[in-house]
């Protein structure tokens, strides 16, 4: 009896909070058939938003993959002064509100701040432009990859790498031929997580991009704008695309996850 109550309460909660709302968005996206949906996501503005989102996400994933690999190797393979600080600082971005991230970047790279003015004088526009959006996206997704890699690196241990050294492999050869193949699934998992976060970032990008239509508007900003312009089909269609990406990510994660422990 108690078991049934528990099951019903848990499932009803998930239904009301998660499953039904997502289902309704899917339903409404296609309520009038496929062509309104297709028209909505193929407008010039929507297509541009797709492109900007993808560009920002790719730069952010590249940056954070390089950073995540190096930081994870440092944390898992070296003991050095400042290691504890690095370990704590990597998690810091998770505790910062996306809006605060945006504000923080404006206060350094904005046109009225010393660094921002210096860059602006040299023709580099950061805020209200792609570099700022990339920085914001990097900020919010910074820990994801390193946090996936560190435990896996610790688990596989250093002995295989040491064996490679004694066999004459240099640090770089050892990394490429021994370490990288051993962490490939965790790396893939981390890249997928970072990419998902990057594609879906809203708050931080909203602050630094200015949301200039046709210039710095990402897909999430497009959703907001369409909704506030009382064009729900545009908002629903773009949301549907983002939700499908999220679900694909979930599926990939569920496929990759068991392999970590094999």
């Amino acid at each position: 009896m108690g078991k049934w109550i528990g099951r019903i309460v848990a499932l009803a909660y998930l239904m009301l909070l998660l499953i039904v709302p997502v289902g309704i968005v899917f339903f409404r996206t296609f309520r009038h058939g496929f062509s309104p949906f297709w028209d909505a996501i193929t407008t010039t503005q929507a297509e541009h938003a797709f492109r900007v989102t993808l560009e920002v996400a790719i730069f952010a994933v590249i940056g954070n993959t390089v950073f995540g690999l190096i930081a994870a190797m440092l944390l898992a393979r070296h003991r050095f002064p400042g290691r504890a600080a690095l370990n704590a600082l990597i998690d810091l971005p998770l505790a910062v509100s996306p809006v605060v991230v945006g504000l923080a970047l404006i206060l350094v790279y904005g046109r009225f701040e010393p660094i921002g003015r210096f860059l602006d004088n040299h023709g580099i526009k950061v805020i209200f432009s792609l570099p700022g959006m990339v920085l914001a996206t990097i900020f919010v997704s910074l820990p994801l990859l390193a946090r996936e890699l560190v435990p896996v690196l610790e688990e596989i241990g250093i002995e295989q790498e040491q064996a490679a050294w004694t066999l004459g492999a240099s640090g770089l050869q050892t990394f490429r031929r021994i370490t990288l193949p051993a962490i490939r699934w965790a790396l893939a998992y981390g890249v997928v997580l970072t990419l998902a976060r990057a594609l879906g970032e809203f708050g931080a990008v909203a602050v630094v991009s200015g949301g200039l239509v046709g210039k710095t508007q990402t897909l999430t900003l497009y959703v907001q704008q369409e909704f506030q312009n009382f064009d729900p089909i545009g908002a629903y269609a773009a949301s549907f695309v983002l939700a499908v990406i999220a679900i694909v990510v979930l599926i990939i994660i569920n496929v990759l996850r068991p392999k970590e422990h094999s």
Binding site: Q160, Q162, A163, A164, W165, T166
Partner: peptide, 20 residues
């Protein structure tokens, strides 16, 4: 000298086999 230049063969207790 780093381990790479010593020309030693090292065998670990837990084999350190390259698993992949």
């Amino acid at each position: 000298l780093p381990p790479q230049r010593r020309n030693v063969g090292f065998v670990f207790q837990h084999y350190a086999a390259f698993k992949h």
